[in-house]
Design a binder for these strands. Sequence first.
DNA 1: ATATCTTATGTTATATCGTAACAGTCAAGA
DNA 2: TCTTGACTGTTACGATATAACATAAGATAT
Lengths: 165, 165
Amino acid sequence: MTQGCDNAVLAFAKHDHGHCTDDVLARADALSEERGVRLTPVRRRALEILLEAHRAMGAYEVLERLAAEGYGNKPPVAYRALEFLVEQGLAHRIRRLNAFAACMHPGETHAPAFFICRTCGAVAEAPAEAVRAAMEVAARALGFAIERMNAEALGLCPGCAEAAR
Amino acid sequence: MTQGCDNAVLAFAKHDHGHCTDDVLARADALSEERGVRLTPVRRRALEILLEAHRAMGAYEVLERLAAEGYGNKPPVAYRALEFLVEQGLAHRIRRLNAFAACMHPGETHAPAFFICRTCGAVAEAPAEAVRAAMEVAARALGFAIERMNAEALGLCPGCAEAAR
DNA sequence: ATATCTTATGTTATATCGTAACAGTCAAGA
DNA sequence: TCTTGACTGTTACGATATAACATAAGATAT
């Protein structure tokens, strides 16, 4: 685990990639074992695909990859694998993009916060306990019980902001 | 028209509805004037529809209403009107629901935070400056410049939580 | 006032995303 | 071994969204 994998991932900064991928996969295996759920071949492969791409991918894009490797080539194949990953906190769904991305720090309870560059499409997932906390405060005022949440921001990543000047 | 709110509500609490609708429309007119943008008939009507419904509505649902009143009945008619409203901060897009809802306090810069009841489907929009602030902090750490953001939480509204016990 | 430019509306056509429902498969326990 | 429940695969369809182009309505300049 070298550069930037621990902080803002799917990050804007370059970093050693093999490590964070292996790491996350190992943790995914461990978590599944622990929880008694099955990280089956399609599911694991779907996660690997997301990790390899290291960016947000549409379900059909993941499906294409899966199909090329002998798995089914109909939408439910991808959606089900991705749904499982999201349920287990191994991936996140980024609604603004109709896309999915591997979670870079699974296991830790966290409210995913995404920062999406509107120019280059890069997506960073940042830990955002403070965001979750703020949402909890607002929820309490409404008497609302939060079960899941996420926050998404659109804007310019450092690189594109630089280029724009 | 005081009690249309008890069903699917934009706020979980009951409240006088005629006032907030009229209020918001008046402010929408004023803001548009101020900004030199045109709140044309379709656009204004789309906003009224969202306000009347007082809940999140899909684009096709809005389209149906518009078409019934003599406006075009093809998707772009609704999508364009809604897009305008979102751009002007007069409505919000709730990605989790593929739906739109009128903004209940337009003009104020705010980060919309939505609380969506997974049982009854009601949606509350809460002011969430603290959420925005937390996102800004995280963004700064990444060198990311936020242009728009939103947060969505799924869970149980007070009524449904009560009923579930 | 009228020609011109810009913005908005409407339509056709199609792309993209997502799911319900059912059939076959496989692994694990009774 | 047989049943049971979870997983995979398929068909078929529904829902959501946009590109591209034609027409109409406002705004602007002369």
